[in-house]
Amino acid sequence: MNAAAMGPKPSQHHRLSKAKLLRRTLFLTLGAALMSVGLEIFLVPNNIIDGGIVGISIIASHLTHVPLGAFLLLLNLPFLFLGYKQIGKTFALSTLYAVAVMSIGTTLLHPIPPLTIDPLLAAVFGGIILGVGVGMVIRSGGSLDGTEIVAILLSKKTAFSVGEFVMFINVFILGSAGFVFGWDRAMYSLIAYYIAFKMIDVTIEGFDESKAVWIISDTYEEIGEAIMQRLGRGVTYLNGEGGFTGGAKKVIFCVITRLEEAKLKSIVEERDPGAFLAVGNIHDVKGGRFKKKDIH
């Protein structure tokens, strides 16, 4: 058997794994560095905080005059240990690296004066930069806040979701900012937190958010052909069975972008106004033939 038939050489696999590791490290570093910029150049000088361990660290640093980076690292360590035990080694190491870069970054940037002393501008731009940074770290398999790890673990043992735990913790932390920095700064902190929250979603999902579509119609062939011709998207026909009638049904499945949703709905409406149509958000698409074909 020749070498080509046996597949890639071991060294090729090794190079590929090193490339993936380099890419992950690059994005973890960039994300953590952006987080540092958002904190030290926008939020912290204007007494605006973020949620989670970062918010606690900002308050503790303000009250004790100990550098922010020290609290960011020390307060996250217990949660990193939990993450290592319960979630996995790769996640824990990625998080440790990102938190370390963020801690060093805030220390180096602390002497630099803020770009603005307008609290609204600081909240808006600081929130944007924070959200992009956190999103990049999450996409790379890490985290910058230990409260997310606690929320994941608690959600497995209770009826509350991860989001509900994170929200409860952050409401308490952001509320505490009112007693330390004043209630106007607490409200600016809420603005920054909300913007960061939205930017995390945009960074993770991208502007061309993908959507999964299921269509049940007797004119499935006509609809499927129109989707392929007019949208340039591939479709898959699935076999289904009606729950009430027991009759055989064909289900059209395809993946589109958010910008194509309105056009797809019009295609279905034109060919079968009574068709069943379900559209759902999906966070990641890999493999297959998702890449759009050119429409001539």
Rank of each mutant, 00 (worst) to 15 (best):
A4M: 01
A4F: 05
G7P: 10
S11L: 13
Q12R: 13
L16H: 13
L21C: 02
L22Q: 02
M35Q: 05
S36N: 05
L39K: 00
I56W: 06
I56Q: 08
H62I: 06
H65Q: 12
N76A: 01
P78Q: 05
T90H: 02
T90K: 04
F91M: 01
A92Y: 04
A92G: 05
Y97R: 02
G105D: 08
T107R: 09
L108D: 13
P111W: 15
D118K: 11
P119D: 09
L121F: 06
L130H: 08
M136L: 14
V137C: 04
S140I: 01
S140T: 04
G141A: 11
G146S: 09
L153D: 11
L153F: 10
G163M: 08
G163W: 10
M167D: 08
G175T: 11
S176G: 15
S176F: 12
S176H: 10
A177E: 10
G178D: 10
W183N: 06
Y188E: 03
L190K: 09
L190V: 11
E209S: 11
S210L: 00
S210E: 02
S210V: 00
A212H: 13
I216W: 02
S217E: 00
T219S: 06
Y220D: 10
Y220C: 04
I227Q: 01
Q229G: 02
L238I: 12
N239D: 14
F244W: 04
A248V: 09
V251S: 13
I252N: 08
F253N: 11
C254M: 03
E260D: 02
I267E: 06
I267F: 05
D272P: 08
A275N: 02
G280N: 14
I282M: 07
D284A: 12
V285G: 00
V285A: 02
R289Y: 07
F290N: 03
K293R: 06
